[in-house]
Design a protein around this nucleic acid. Structure first.
Lengths: 238, 238
DNA sequence: GTCAAGTGGAGGTCACTCCTCCACATCTCG
DNA sequence: CGAGATGTGGAGGAGTGACCTCCACTTGAC
């Protein structure tokens, strides 16, 4: 009754991945598409049942493929985040540093207004994994972008990376609130803010406080409320 | 068997209000205080059970006194809204129109950051009743405030009432997100925006779109998602 | 043709909140 | 003081909106 659990010629359970059946693979892709769409629209906590329905697939299927929501999110946004890096690289390519900065601000804001999940992904420090990784790649790039803009002499010298982050966050909030008006109302306020960033104007109104340092920003980020969906319960308390 | 439902000397059910018993009146006040505190902190949809608990009162008591959440909200904020009018009046009292405008922006923003319920109250067109009424009183005052600021020549001439509303909304959002840092981070961005409002700077960055008119603002407001708490079910459908 | 792999979705679970109801407690007023 | 009107607490039923499991059945691969 001692049993060989794996045949000698072919390992039963290949270390990590095994090839999916063709139909299963197709379903998997459907799920990812559906999740991408729904989460962009309704946020990271879009009900899994809705996603399954949108994908034309049973809820069980979704669960077998992605046992936790985090797995799903990760799979969906693996590439989405790369968009950021691309935008940055394009912005850095601009010959005028000032224009590059504005271009990036606008592009990133548009992106996050259109994709609510993306926005939440950055807000909740989510993946530890994926996001942190991107963060690490992105931070120095943004830094360069800012420095280049300052070098033109147009940007107020006390501008910092955190300013960019917060302005973006504000514009995203507004953009979403005024979506129904169409017509990009938020751009008006981006323009106003940008005018306020001109070096020529530094000082007329006291800012009262320097920009947050990257370190402070990181701390703030980590004190965020936990991710907004229910996690699998921890092993029972008592 | 025909019965006199009211005694001739003393009407059983005075038209609207009847005097509460002393203890009941005390409870009522406790409830209002508790609701004020909790709603400021957690928003208009703070669980009624929590409010009752905070007030040291049974849930039944709360319901007898305020049959619907709307009743409670109305009672709590009846006066809170008056604060607005006062702030406006003070701002209008400033001799410098520009300073008055800034003072009001700052005061109103602080207020709404500290009181989440107040913020929601204005966002969801809530009371039809109370809010609309205040709105009506407030709008012309704000208008005057803006006009006075323009008269100083410091404010960009295309500034409109809606700009004030949106800027405030953005700052509130930021203020809440950065609360944990203390230190009023949002004021930095208020300063930046304000710099962008200076008439001297009009134009450097194209705004792309004029400010929303009051009419447009109203329409936007009305297309808001419904109030975020469950309402008493309508009489059963079928 | 066989059978491992994959599927659907009914139904159990859970966490919340709402709101009713009534035996009991507390005032008020004569 | 005592009677009756007024007020109270909070257990419990009901509704909601998600999560996740399980297994009889279907399908693709070889």
């Amino acid at each position: 009754m001692t049993v060989a659990t794996t045949s000698p010629t072919e390992p039963r359970v290949p270390p990590d991945e095994r090839r999916l059946r063709r139909d299963a693979e197709a379903n998997r892709r459907q799920i990812l598409r559906a999740a991408g769409r729904l989460m962009a629209e309704r946020g990271l906590s879009a009900p899994l049942e809705d996603i399954a329905a949108e994908a034309g697939v049973g809820i069980g299927t979704l669960y077998r493929r992605f046992p936790t929501r985090a797995d799903l999110v990760e799979a969906v946004f693996a590439d989405h985040l790369a968009v950021y890096v691309e935008a940055l690289e394009e912005a850095l390519g601009a010959e005028d540093g000032w224009a590059g900065l504005l271009w990036f601000l606008e592009a990133a804001t548009t992106h996050q207004i259109e994709n609510r999940a993306l926005n939440e992904l950055l807000e909740y420090n989510l993946g530890e994994a994926a996001v942190a990784q991107v963060q690490e790649k992105v931070t120095p790039l943004v830094d360069t972008l800012v420095e280049r803009a300052k070098a033109t002499g147009r940007l107020r010298p006390d501008f910092a990376l955190s300013d960019l982050a917060f302005m973006q966050q504000m514009l995203v909030a507004l953009g979403r609130a005024t979506e129904s008006v169409g017509d990009r109302v938020w751009k008006r306020y981006m323009a106003i803010m940008v005018d306020g960033l001109l070096a020529a104007r530094t000082g007329p109104t006291p800012t009262g406080r320097a920009a947050l340092s990257i370190e402070e920003l990181r701390v703030l980020h980590e004190s965020r409320p936990p991710v907004p969906w229910r996690r699998r319960a921890d092993p029972p308390e008592r």
